[in-house]
Computed example of a mutant assay.
Amino acid sequence: MDYSLVIAAAQAAGPCPPGDEPSWGHRVQALTVDLHMIAQQAFQDIARLESSRRFVAFLAEVEIEASSRRGLLTLRSASGEAEHVRTEQQETDRGRALIERARSLKGRWVLVFRYNEQTSATQSVRMLAHLMDLGDGAISVAVAQKILTDDAGGVVSRAQAAWAAAGLPTTGTVSVEQLNSARAQLPQP
């Protein structure tokens, strides 16, 4: 049993009023269950992020798809190619939150966390897991190296060779253009 949830719930419930132990205990129990449910959702969200493909793009448009009520994001790579990614339905808490976040980042460079959701045995839809604002386009070296490693099919030596060939720093940040120059250096398998 995870007693840390019970401790957190007891702290959230506050001190037990004298003589009110039974109702306070029920409140702590209810809060523990709520925290457990929140933790399970957080673990699912983290797993989705960990398995997502990451890439940098310019967020050009955010619309609501009429047929599915999902947010439909139009993303443009540095080369100008468009990719469409969907959110969960607008009526869900998660869908609404992602749509609002995307709208607030429209017209900016973003780090996109995308996964594929199977819609049938033969089809899948590109789904948005998370967006991170890159502001002026500066990307931390660690994130940029992860993106490059993903682009290299997970082959670290290919990513390292491309990073070195592009002459990028080992600490700090790089621009979107610098990351794209390293991507262009990726040796073909």
Rank of each mutant, 00 (worst) to 15 (best):
M1W: 02
D2M: 02
V6W: 06
I7C: 02
A8W: 04
Q11C: 01
A12E: 14
C16I: 03
P17K: 10
G19H: 11
P22M: 09
S23L: 06
H26T: 03
A30H: 06
V33W: 04
D34Y: 10
L35W: 11
H36C: 01
M37H: 07
I38D: 02
I38Y: 00
A39R: 14
F43W: 02
R48T: 08
L49E: 11
L49V: 05
E50G: 09
S51N: 09
R53Y: 10
R54E: 14
A57Q: 10
A57H: 11
F58S: 06
V62H: 09
V62F: 12
E65I: 00
S67T: 15
S67G: 15
S68N: 08
S68A: 13
R69I: 01
R69F: 07
R70D: 05
L73D: 12
L75Q: 05
L75H: 13
R76D: 11
R76L: 15
S79A: 09
G80R: 13
E81N: 12
E81H: 11
E81S: 11
A82R: 15
V85R: 11
V85C: 08
R86F: 14
T87A: 08
E88N: 11
Q89T: 08
Q90L: 15
T92D: 07
D93R: 15
R94S: 10
G95D: 10
A97F: 13
I99Q: 08
I99C: 02
I99F: 11
I99H: 07
R101F: 02
A102G: 12
A102N: 13
A102E: 04
R108N: 14
V112Q: 07
R114F: 00
R114Q: 15
Y115S: 13
N116I: 14
T119V: 14
T122A: 03
V125T: 13
V125A: 07
V125G: 00
R126M: 10
R126Q: 14
L128H: 03
H130S: 14
L134M: 12
G135I: 08
G135F: 06
D136W: 02
G137L: 06
S140E: 13
S140F: 07
A144D: 05
K146H: 07
K146F: 01
T149Y: 01
T149Q: 13
D150E: 14
D151Y: 01
G154K: 07
G154Q: 03
G154Y: 10
R158Y: 12
R158S: 06
A161V: 10
A162Y: 04
A162L: 04
A164R: 06
A165F: 00
A165L: 03
A165M: 01
A165C: 03
A166Q: 02
A166H: 06
G167R: 07
P169I: 02
T170N: 12
T170D: 15
G172K: 08
G172N: 06
V176D: 03
V176C: 09
E177Q: 12
Q178G: 02
Q178Y: 04
L179V: 04
L179E: 07
L179M: 05
S181M: 04
S181I: 00
S181Y: 08
A182I: 10
A182N: 09
R183E: 05
R183M: 13
A184N: 10
Q185D: 00
L186Q: 07
L186Y: 08
P189H: 06
P189W: 09
P189M: 04
